[in-house]
Design a protein around this nucleic acid. Structure first.
Lengths: 296, 296
DNA sequence: TGAAGCGATACTCTTGGGGTATGAACCTGC
DNA sequence: GCAGGTTCATACCCCAAGAGTATCGCTTCA
């Protein structure tokens, strides 16, 4: 088999049609160059050059091989390029887990920011709840997640992305909606309430329970998705507590009013990733994510 | 820059995910293999492998580079193939000069034979008269010619391809044509005659003059192409002497009759090539051409 | 905790690529 | 016709680099 150096030597000679000039171009002397080309011809068992006393000529086989060599060397020169780009994280794949609720708050803006600041990184999106994200992160199925606290402090690292208040979602004809003033926990306690599922929306359920002291008999439905919740409110099945960003859904027949008792940062959304991740794209994405940190 | 051997080393390790096994596959020991891969990573300035205590894993960049390497090595392995084929003459280009007259005698059969026995050799056809062929052969513009004697005996070599008689072409209503018997030179001498041009068809002109003792005043036209000659005969402008193979043209209103005085081998067509040709395709084509040698 | 597995390192030896000097063939011009 | 120049090949030397052996350090697992 031949070496890339031999190919380079041959290309130089074939282009210069002169060993001396070719050697000069390769920053070496003529004798070793002659030997390399001879060795190449021997390795291929094909004559590539016709040595004349006034320079050299290519044989038919030499012409064809010159062509092959050019392509080969071109490819060899470019081969490291992609590897370097990927290593630098400028190019690559980031598998991103996200919760359904994050999709109408921060996700859109995050994707725009990534598209702008890391255009080479393609994002693969996977909707999953926080617990699934933890597991996926652990097994390496995703590189980053948009999830809610608490986080186990072993391998997962997180950075807050979004903090918002819980607001009260009411049917637009409800008296409290017509009043248009912030609502108190006591007022909500008197209304039929659509609650979050214990298993699939534990985070929100715990928040609501902490704020409201929910009566068991006021709960009309138990659902896991904010969107379902809002739809039920629109249908007049009761009121619900949803994150502020649910306003972006713009559902008709639903009025959102502040909850007096809700701090403006009860609902937290964090970006979360594995400290041991080897994906270079993560290194590029992280600073961009951190730029989006809430500043209030 | 890296070497093909380093690429091969990396591919082996990436495929085995184990330095020991990879080294075995490459028929070497593990330490130099480790060093080669380290060197490759240093040359690229990119980490390709993650060394664990239980074998190795590919980084994202490593995965991409593995792909590049496979393509590169594949191309490198195949590069000599074409050169060898061309060198063996199994593949290549043969530029063939031919005279207009040969195109309706031997050319068709020759091309079929070449297509069958040397399918890899593509033929480039160039119509030119004998003198032009000599010159083109000398300058290397063609590799072989189908031409007529005499040949200068310096660098050009030739092999007879076709020998045929001269026949008399007559308008089909001409009395001699109606008679349907071989014609004598004396009979032709009494007819208006279409002659060959001195400059562009000297070979035929000399042959005819040698056989007929042409009267100057019997010549009605002087042309250079056999086809033109036959067309004039069909138009009733006189008779003409043409090679036997002109019958293949199948022109209407023209009858061909043997000329009593013509030997069956007056008209000669030779394949001609340069002894110093470096085109390997010629070596493959020559035996095929020689098989077509006239055997009468 | 000790044995086994795995990759890296230290050291030695040999191969091979590059350099200089020179040879052989060929063209050129006086 | 021969001297001189051009061009590629060969002879010989040296050193860098690659391969081998022995061994180390780390991790894992019984």
């Amino acid at each position: 088999m031949f070496t890339l150096d031999q190919a380079r030597a041959f290309v130089a000679v074939a282009e210069e049609l002169h060993f001396g000039r070719a050697a000069e171009r390769l920053h070496m002397t003529q004798p070793p160059l002659s030997r390399q080309v001879q060795k190449l011809e021997k390795a291929l068992d094909v004559g590539l050059l016709i040595r004349g006393s006034r320079g050299v000529t290519l044989t038919a086989a030499g012409t064809a091989f010159l062509d092959e060599c050019r392509q080969l060397l071109d490819r060899a020169d470019r081969a490291p390029q992609r590897a370097r780009l990927i290593d630098a994280g400028q190019e690559g794949l980031l598998r991103l887990g996200y919760t359904a609720a994050s999709s109408f708050s921060i996700l859109g803006g995050l994707l725009s920011a990534l598209k702008e600041r890391a255009p080479g990184v393609s994002i693969e999106l996977r909707e999953m709840v926080t617990a699934q994200q933890m597991e996926a992160l652990r097994t390496g199925a995703i590189d980053m997640g948009l999830a809610r606290p608490p986080f186990p402090d072993d391998d997962a690292v997180s950075s807050p992305l979004l903090q918002e208040a819980l607001v009260v979602a009411l049917h637009h004809e409800h008296p409290l909606a017509r009043r248009g003033q912030p609502v108190t926990a006591a007022e909500v306690r008197r209304e039929p309430l659509i609650m979050h599922s214990t298993e699939h929306a534990r985070y929100f359920r715990d928040l609501v329970v902490g704020l409201l002291d929910v009566r068991e008999d006021q709960v009309t439905h138990t659902v896991s998705q904010v969107l379902t919740m809002m739809t039920l409110v629109a249908a007049g099945h009761g009121c619900a507590l949803v994150p502020d960003s649910a306003a972006r859904l713009g559902l008709p027949k639903v009025t959102l009013l502040p909850l007096v008792e809700s701090p403006s940062d009860v609902v937290q959304l964090h970006a979360m990733w594995s400290r041991g991740s080897t994906n270079p794209a993560l290194k590029v994405v992280l600073p961009i994510v951190k730029l989006m940190r809430p500043n209030r």
